[in-house]
Amino acid sequence: MNEPRVRLQNAAMYYDALTVLGQPNFPMAQNEKIMNQPMVRFENVTKRYGALTVLDKLNLDISRNERVSIIGPSGSGKTTVLRMLMTLERINDGVIWVNGEPLTHMQRSGRMVPANNRHLRRVRGQIGMVFQHFNLFPHMTALQNCMEAPVSVLGLSKPEAEARAADLLDMVGLGEKKNHFPIQLSGGQKQRVAIARALAMRPKVMLFDEVTSALDPELVGEVLNVIRKLGAEFDLTMLMVTHQMGFAKEFSNRVCFFYGGKIAEQGSPDQLFGDPQNERTRQFLSAVLEAK
């Protein structure tokens, strides 16, 4: 049961590296440079809704395979960070970089201009997202949910996509339920299908937006277990907005506390939860822990 699973992501990247290196005259230095880039970089990113500034000059680097948790009171802009990275929201200022390449902008005759749809589609292909309310396609089975994008976007054949989807549904423990429709699944099962669906696109970055907030308490564990498994078996950069402080502490490499559209404090889980420096962080943590 606990046999290490094939590192899909790793294998694919290894293969990419081989093909690239196999080409003569490939500039090694450039490859090195890309590998040393942060996986995601927010550079002075500002987001406003009318007069309200939701995020104010956000600067945040996330390294390859890092797991970052974002916590903070509601309205602090934490979900907006994920939504901007998924291109569900346009930003008002700054640049977001993914894997060393600008996401929100593109080069045109030497100048950075706002990205067009084609550019957005290409770059955001490296990012997958899981939503608070699952957003499964209700008219498709679990399997079809996981096959739709690999077939229509990546161009996989139906059997290939089906094998991939079935594999991932097995991985999240829903191999038996693959022909069920979302309405026939519990909240925890729906969320696990949603995770499998995102993984079927082989993203390099996974975004989790309060993925357990809409679940009954007894179903939270099964979803968190799947995320733990991803951490163990895939090479993924993960960025999660969460209210599960215990999970954030156990699972992430870094925790960012957002307050009023800024990162008020960030650090290792031990440091942030054990010895918070910022007064706001202390207030927030004591309020959250008291409620438990």
């Binding site: 291109t87 569900l88 589609r121 997958g128 309310h133 699952f134 957003n135 739709e148 994008a149 229509s152």
Partner: peptide
Amino acid sequence: VDGGQWEACTALNLSPQRSWRAIILPQ
């Protein structure tokens, strides 16, 4: 049709045409 369906389409990188045809209109 719930706005979350469009967001899922974007997150999965479906083209607008495919989103309409396979996801939005059937609902």
